[in-house]
């Protein structure tokens, strides 16, 4: 019972979406059923994302409670979650039941600053605090890649040499100064790199990987629909 019902649900939902592919959505009831499932998927998917955040808060709150190492930083994480989430969750109009109660207590002038729209506190926190940090976190990888280029990228054998040679060619081709340098050898060289390296060797390998990965994903999908793959259900 605890496993059978979920397997039936997965089978029915998956099969309906597969079958719907073969019918025109407007001529058969299956089109409506598909629309309903898709709508439900977006709703259930939303809850799944929130579940992840609840886990983060729980783990960090526990560490703060126990005053384990670095508890102050973890407290800051928890405070930041609420600072971002709570103003965003407040009602943005008086038209809803919750909104009319909320704005009978708090001034109407707060309306523009709550929710997720432009000029909201949420919007401001994202644009001026969260986004700059996210950009910087990833920008720091440029330093690591420079260090790795110096310390780790060694032409130890023929394959590694080929990789380094192609990488150098592509790095030159993708920037104006490098492209001008390549043109010193032949005016057609940048074009050849685009056509044969990117459009030839690279396309062939990427295609092989895409086909291989797609076959794997298709077989995994089939296993889930048929109830053979059940690990996602946990113990």
């Amino acid at each position: 019972m605890r496993t059978t019902i979920p397997i039936i649900v997965a089978f029915l939902a998956g099969t309906l979406l597969i079958v719907s592919f073969f019918f025109h959505p407007e001529t058969i009831w299956i089109g409506d059923a598909k629309e309903v499932i898709l709508q439900w998927m977006t709703i259930v998917g939303g809850f799944a994302l929130v579940l992840g955040v609840v886990s983060i808060v729980r783990v960090n709150a526990r560490a703060v409670q126990r005053k384990s190492e670095g508890w102050f930083y973890k407290l800051m994480t928890v405070i930041s979650v609420f600072a971002m989430a709570i103003p965003a969750m407040m009602p943005v109009t008086k038209e809803s039941v919750g909104g009319s109660i909320f704005y009978s207590i708090f001034p109407d002038s707060w309306m523009g600053y709550l929710g997720t729209g432009s000029n909201s506190f949420y919007d401001w926190l994202f644009n001026y605090v969260d986004a700059p940090m996210m950009e910087t976190m990833f920008a720091m990888l440029a330093f690591y890649i420079a260090s790795a280029a110096y310390r780790a990228f060694r032409a130890r054998n023929a394959e590694a040499t080929l990789l380094l040679f192609t990488a150098t060619l592509v790095m030159l081709w993708r920037v104006p100064m490098g492209e001008a340098f390549l043109r010193l050898f032949s005016d057609n060289l940048p074009g050849y790199i685009n056509t044969y390296v990117m459009g030839g060797f690279n396309v062939a390998v990427q295609r092989g990987i895409i086909i291989g990965a797609a076959l794997g994903a298709a077989s995994m999908s089939l296993r889930i629909i048929l109830g053979i793959e059940r690990t996602y259900m946990g113990k």
């Binding site: 994480t77 405070i79 969750m89 996210m134």
Partner: peptide, 27 residues
């Protein structure tokens, strides 16, 4: 360390705010 932890918290909070408004309320 402080910036890193604030960043993690704000990013998690962003999900909650977004899902609350766009999925739970609107949908």
């Amino acid at each position: 360390k402080l910036s890193e932890h604030v960043f993690a918290g704000l990013s998690a909070g962003y999900y909650v705010g977004l899902i609350w408004q766009t999925v739970i309320i609107q949908q």
